[in-house]
Design a protein around this nucleic acid. Sequence first.
DNA 1: AATGAATGAGGATTCATTCAT
DNA 2: AATGAATGAATCCTCATTCAT
Lengths: 216, 216, 216, 216
Amino acid sequence: MARRIDPERHRARRLQIIDAGLTVFAHAGYAGATTAAICREAGIGSGTFFHYFPTKDSLLLAILDEGLAETREFFAAQEGRADAVQVLLDWVRHALDDLRDPRATGFIAAVSGLSMRDDVATALRADEKATRTGLMHWLALAQGSGEVRSDLSVDRLAGWVMLIVDGFAGRVGGSADFEVTAEEVLLFEVITTFLAGPSAPPHRATQQEREEDPHA
Amino acid sequence: MARRIDPERHRARRLQIIDAGLTVFAHAGYAGATTAAICREAGIGSGTFFHYFPTKDSLLLAILDEGLAETREFFAAQEGRADAVQVLLDWVRHALDDLRDPRATGFIAAVSGLSMRDDVATALRADEKATRTGLMHWLALAQGSGEVRSDLSVDRLAGWVMLIVDGFAGRVGGSADFEVTAEEVLLFEVITTFLAGPSAPPHRATQQEREEDPHA
Amino acid sequence: MARRIDPERHRARRLQIIDAGLTVFAHAGYAGATTAAICREAGIGSGTFFHYFPTKDSLLLAILDEGLAETREFFAAQEGRADAVQVLLDWVRHALDDLRDPRATGFIAAVSGLSMRDDVATALRADEKATRTGLMHWLALAQGSGEVRSDLSVDRLAGWVMLIVDGFAGRVGGSADFEVTAEEVLLFEVITTFLAGPSAPPHRATQQEREEDPHA
Amino acid sequence: MARRIDPERHRARRLQIIDAGLTVFAHAGYAGATTAAICREAGIGSGTFFHYFPTKDSLLLAILDEGLAETREFFAAQEGRADAVQVLLDWVRHALDDLRDPRATGFIAAVSGLSMRDDVATALRADEKATRTGLMHWLALAQGSGEVRSDLSVDRLAGWVMLIVDGFAGRVGGSADFEVTAEEVLLFEVITTFLAGPSAPPHRATQQEREEDPHA
DNA sequence: AATGAATGAGGATTCATTCAT
DNA sequence: AATGAATGAATCCTCATTCAT
């Protein structure tokens, strides 16, 4: 009787290799990550690797795809919420959670060194578009309720929020003394201030409220 | 009349190779940049390349050194100025000018993929430290004159200014529709707002208000 | 009621794989024929393949053995015939029929590229020896009845008949515009002429002339 | 002062590698010929090999090209001759000389196993077309002078002469006891008889003359 | 018997680097 | 100083074969 194909097992192995790839890419960079090292990390033979991924490149793209899927899942999970601004901040929190995986920044750095490659660029664009689209939806709502500045298009707002978060991610990877937990407060301040816009700084208002609140 | 070694000529050739390296690294990434391609770009033979740089790595480090030197030159040129805040903004302008070289973002991306390597990390840290030190000097002055928020250390302020500028640089490289010239206004807004801090709205209009309403 | 091993079924599967091997070897050459491709062609899993043949090599040798068996069958079927020359020509016809299988020439070409391997060389020699032996028998009879030239040994005659047929087979595979059906007439002419020998023109027209002009 | 590019040296090295390739392909077949073995045979490092030939395939094609060039040279050297039939027989002699290189038949066998590959097929077709064209020229002349049968087109005649020579070449490689020198007489007989055609066997005439001559 | 996931030896190819000229 | 031919270590990948189910 034929051995049944077990999709569970296949998917598990695949994720195991993806995880190993993430680890080794993050530690050694893409070029420095030999398939042998990835196999060692995954605890498999080289043949098995190529049984699951036709090329080393395809593993990279699979990881990027996984990231895209995660992004989509995040936004799909927010559907139906009413507090647009909180969704935006939750996305930032979500991004920060990713950054707590010590491999994240290394991987991001490794991939950014490959952005001249068409396949990588396409995958990166897909991820960034999914994020941008997701953010724009809530930014539009927040603009509608007056919680977010209206002097900039939602597209531009989304881009700038991502810009700030990306810059933050770069620091996390770059400086050893830049800790997510220690710096996240400031991140929220900067983003909130930015979204409030020049004429009605919300963060300041919030702080004032706080100062006034204790007496209440 | 034996021809003496001409240091001028030597330095010119060296710069020529550095320039070619910058171009090819930016276009192809570090691993994708073969020494052969760099030689072609520089219009020299491979032997000549290794006459000037012992290894491909050393060329990369030389480029990074060049960047460090430029950073130091910038700050050296500001010495003696009295308008601290303007110096800070001039540094941002200076960084933006660098980004107008189309190779800049590609090179930055290429290098960030190598940050796990000790030699590269050291060079990057040196550059970032020079910048940070330079900024901190003027931030301290600006704090002293009350033009910059004092709730954060100059170290942290410097880090965050760099964070924002780095995030900006990442966008310039990443999205084709993110133009330096179109977006720089917003960059200045974000940085100015950040430096002003939550309690002091930085926007010009806001600043004018401040000047008019110092007693409040 | 334990299922007994079914030799019929086993033999059928074996032939199915042999047939697939012939097809794929012919299309892709020996090295280019992956066991995976053969399995696909045969509609079986790789495990099944190695259940029937211990190695890819052994499949090749089995195909060659099959050819040898066929050769032997052919000559066994001729036993007892009296018309030696016709048997020889029937063998040519038989060889031509083989060539009508479009896979034949591809397979022959593939195998000839392996003739430096001892096992293949041995198998090829066995086939060629069976053919040669078969032909020699009838050539000897034909020589005895004066229908075939006697200035050459039967061994040499057999070799040359095979040489011509092999050359013909090579053309069938090599040129798209060399059709078996169109060219076989000439093949019979050349072989007949060769077997008749220099002193006895074999072509019918020529023979008629001869009969009419015996004094010349 | 720059090292001068020495085209002589380059061509010599190239031929050296081609020669080694011919040897190893003939001995081991194409797939069995590792680039390492070719380099060992040529006495060079693997890097040098790929300095002269971008791929192992390209070496094979270069060898085939060399064969094509040789074919063209042969026919170019015959230009202006008046004895068409002798030119044809000289071509056969030329082909036999090639076969005296013990590597020739092995190489031919190796290549015929690759004829399903487009690049190889194209190269083989080019060689065969050059030969065919060359032969057709002299066959036409010989037909004009009545020395060669006219019941077949020159195209077909050329194909059949090549068929017979190819069959001969196959035997040289296949059987250890098929010696060029011992068998070439018969080759000339078969070809001459074939070209004379059924109605006027020229070889027979010649033999009759011989038989009559001794008495003269 | 049948399957296909897992394996790893083997091989083509790349490319930084050396060195004779 | 300048060159580019020569080098070989290092790496990705293929594919015949094994084996647990």
